[in-house]
């Protein structure tokens, strides 16, 4: 499933637009960045509350398809600028990681 479809199906708010045609092949949830770098795979949808510049860097390094900020977590201004510059898609939901994970598992 493409990021664009995912966004529509889950009714996600778009905070930054990267490659909306990127293919979502998996999903990973976590907020500790080194943990994410150890476990997340390329093409993953990454569920997190970390809306800072370091999360953007980690998403790029791991080649995540997109970031979904869960439970309406905030996105820093510097993170937004960096995400736009690096082509990282950041979406947002009011749902928590569990609820999103359950829905995503039915889609991909």
């Amino acid at each position: 499933m493409k990021v664009n479809e995912l966004k529509d199906k889950l009714g996600l708010e778009v905070l930054t637009e990267g490659d909306l045609n990127a293919e979502c092949t998996g999903c990973y949830s976590g907020d500790l960045l080194s943990w994410v770098m150890s476990k997340a795979e390329a093409g993953d949808i990454w569920l997190t509350v970390m809306g800072n510049i370091n999360a953007v860097a980690v998403s790029v390094l791991c080649d995540c398809a997109c970031i979904i900020l869960t439970e309406k977590a905030a996105l820093d201004d510097t993170a937004k600028i960096k995400a736009e510059a690096q082509g990282v898609t950041i979406l947002r939901s009011e749902k928590n990681a569990y609820q999103l994970g359950v829905e995503i598992s039915k889609l991909i």
Binding site: D31, L32, L33, S34, M37, S38, M50, N52, N54, A55
Partner: peptide, 15 residues
């Protein structure tokens, strides 16, 4: 608070 401090950095580098 920034998301660091999991104590996974050096193990990751090795991995």
């Amino acid at each position: 608070c920034l998301g660091f401090g999991a104590g996974m950095g050096l193990p990751n580098i090795k991995k």
